[in-house]
Simulated assay, not measured.
Amino acid sequence: MASHEFRTPLTAVLTSASLIEQYPATEQQDKRLRHLERIRQSVNHLNDILEEFLSVGRIEEGKVEARPALLSLPELLQETVVDVQGLLKHGQTIEQDVTCPETVWLDASLLRKILVNLLSNALKYSGENSVVRVRATCAEGQLTLTVQDQGVGISREDQEHLFERFFRARNVTNVPGTGLGLYIIAKYLELMNGTIALESTLDVGTTVTLTIPYENHSAD
C-alpha cells in the first residue's frame, strides 16, 4: 500500500515534467501551467503521505505528548478552514458554527491536525456543490466538535474497522489514501483524553463527533 501511494504521485510528476518539455513555444504557456499545477498537487499529496507515516512512527514510539495551552477555538477553526481551501472541489463550501469561550486550555497543534484530517476527508469523499458543516460547542468543561459531510458514506460493516491502521472502506479504494487518517486522529484524541464517534449512511454522508475535555483557566 505504501509503495502504491508513493508511486502514484511520483509517476504524475515525472509524466508532467516530460510533457512540459514538449511545449517550448510561448503560446503554449497554458499547457505548461496545467502540468505545473499537477506537479504541485502531486508534491503536496506526497507531503501529506509522508506526514501520516511519520506521525504514526512518532505516536507508536511515544514521542507525541499533549501540551495544553490557551487557545481561541474560533480563531483555530477559521485558520484550519483556510488551510484546506485548496482541497475544495467546484461548488463545495465549508460552514462553521462555533459557540465556545474565546479561550480554552487545549493542545492547539494536535487539535489543528485532527481538524485538518477530518475536513480533508470530508471534502475528499464528497462531490461537487456539497456542504461540509463544522460545529463546535463548549459546555461544562467539554468541547464537542462535529464534522458533517454529504459524501459517499461508509457501510456498517466497514465502520467496525475504520480506526485500524491501513484500513480503507471498500467504496473508496479508487480515491488516494493510506488508511491512516482516522487511526492517527484516534491516537491524538487518546492523548487529549477525548473520544470519537462516527455515524454514516451510504450515499448520504458521514458525521464525526469528537468530545474533548478542556480547562479554561488562565496560563497562571
Rank of each mutant, 00 (worst) to 15 (best):
A2G: 10
R7C: 06
R7Y: 13
L10T: 10
L10I: 12
A12L: 15
A12C: 12
L14W: 09
T15A: 10
S16I: 03
E21L: 14
Q22E: 12
A25E: 14
Q28E: 08
Q29G: 07
Q29L: 15
K31N: 09
R32D: 06
R32E: 10
L36S: 01
E37I: 15
R38L: 15
N44C: 05
L46A: 06
N47V: 01
D48W: 09
I49A: 03
I49M: 05
E52C: 01
S55D: 06
G57R: 13
E61R: 13
E61M: 08
A66F: 13
R67V: 04
R67K: 15
A69V: 15
L71V: 04
L73D: 01
L73S: 00
P74M: 04
P74N: 02
E75W: 10
L76Y: 02
E79W: 05
V81W: 09
Q85E: 05
Q85Y: 11
Q85L: 10
L87Q: 11
E95Y: 11
D97Q: 11
E102I: 10
E102P: 03
E102T: 13
L106S: 02
D107P: 00
L119K: 09
S120P: 03
N121K: 14
G127M: 06
N129H: 15
N129M: 09
V131F: 10
V134N: 06
C138F: 14
T144I: 14
T146V: 07
T146Q: 15
Q150R: 08
V152G: 04
I154T: 02
I154W: 07
R156H: 07
H161W: 14
L162W: 03
F163N: 00
E164S: 04
F166E: 02
F167H: 08
A169W: 05
R170S: 06
R170G: 05
N171V: 04
N174R: 05
P176T: 05
G179Q: 02
G181E: 02
L182C: 01
I185N: 00
K187M: 05
L189K: 06
N193V: 04
G194M: 13
S200T: 02
V204E: 15
T206S: 09
T211G: 04
Y214L: 11
S218L: 14
